[in-house]
Simulated scan of single mutants.
Amino acid sequence: MKKIVSLLICLSFSLQIFASKVDTLVVHSKSMNKEIKNVVILPDSYSKEGKALSVVYLLHGAGGDYKAWLGKAPNIKALADLHNVIIVCPDGEAKSWYFDSPIDETYKYETYISTELIAGVDKNYNTIASHKNRAITGYSMGGHGALYLAFKHTDVWGVAASMSGGVDIRPYALKWGIPDRLGNYSEYPEHWEKNSVINLVHLLGDKKLKFLFDCGVDDFFYEDNKRLHKKLIERKIPHDYIERPGRHDGPYWSNSIIYQMLFFKEFFTQETK
C-alpha cells in the first residue's frame, strides 16, 4: 500500500512538468476518400532513430474532435512523458460512434481507426508495430468505441479500456446521432444488437485481451456498465472494473486516464520482458 501511495505522489509531482511535443498527423482514409487530422503526442525522449515506443490511442466522445482530449484532460501531455509512450488522438467526427455504418458508406470509422490510422502512425513514427504494444481507450462515445474496436480486433490491440463508456447503445435509440449511423431501431433492430459492446463479449472467447472499464456512480451510463460487468463475470471473462464517485464530465476523465495509463504501462512492461 505504501508503495502505491508513493507512486501516486511521484506521479502527481511529475504531471506538473512535461516537455512532450504535439504533432498533427493527417492520414488519408481510402475507405472514406478524405483526409483526417489526428493529434499525436510524442514524449520528450522520442527519437526517430532511437528506441521504438508503445502507442496509446485515445478516442473522444460525441460532439468532440481530434483536439477534444487536450481540452478535457491536458495532463495527457505529461502522461506521455511519464510513461514514455506515444499518444494518438484520432478524429472520429462528432457522432461516428466508431462504426462502419451499415446504412451510410461515407462513415467507416472502424476501418479507419483499426486499419488506416494504425498504418499511418506506424509509418510516420518510431513505434513498436505490435498489438502487444498498442492500447486504446476513450470517454463516453469513445469508451464505447475503444471496447468495440478492441473486442473486434484483438490482433490490433492487446490492451484496452473505457471510461464512462456507452457500452449498451440500445436504450438510447433517439440520442447522440446513433440512428444516423445504424438506422432507426424500430426498422433495423439487428444493427443495434450487433453493434452494442455488451453483445460482443462472445467475440473474446479464448482470445487474449486485457481490459479495464470504469464509470462514475452518478453517470447516466453507470447502470449499463454494471450490466456489462455482470455479464463478463457470468461468462468468466477476465477483466478489471472500477466504479467510483463521479459524473459524466471532464474532471472524471482527467482523473481516470491517470489510472488507465498505469494499467497500460504495466501491460507493456510485462509483454516486453
Rank of each mutant, 00 (worst) to 15 (best):
D65A: 14
I87W: 10
Y112W: 09
C89P: 03
I86F: 05
K77E: 14
K72W: 12
Y109Q: 13
V56N: 15
P43G: 04
V56C: 10
C89Q: 05
V85E: 04
V56R: 12
L79V: 04
K21Q: 08
Y107C: 10
N84E: 15
I41M: 09
A78N: 06
K95N: 15
S29M: 06
N33L: 07
I113H: 01
K37S: 12
V88H: 01
P102G: 11
M32I: 09
Y66S: 08
L25D: 02
G92P: 02
K37V: 00
L15E: 03
V55K: 11
W69M: 02
S29W: 04
K67L: 13
V40D: 10
A94K: 15
Y57V: 12
K108E: 12
L53Y: 05
A73D: 06
S54C: 13
E35W: 00
N84Y: 03
N75Y: 09
P43M: 09
W97A: 05
K30V: 04
W97M: 04
A62F: 15
D91W: 03
V85M: 06
K37E: 09
K77L: 14
V26K: 13
F99D: 00
D44P: 00
V88Q: 14
E116H: 08
L58I: 14
E105Q: 10
V39H: 09
K77S: 14
E116T: 08
S47D: 14
G64M: 12
G61I: 06
V27A: 02
L58R: 07
A94L: 07
K95E: 11
D65I: 09
I113S: 04
V40P: 01
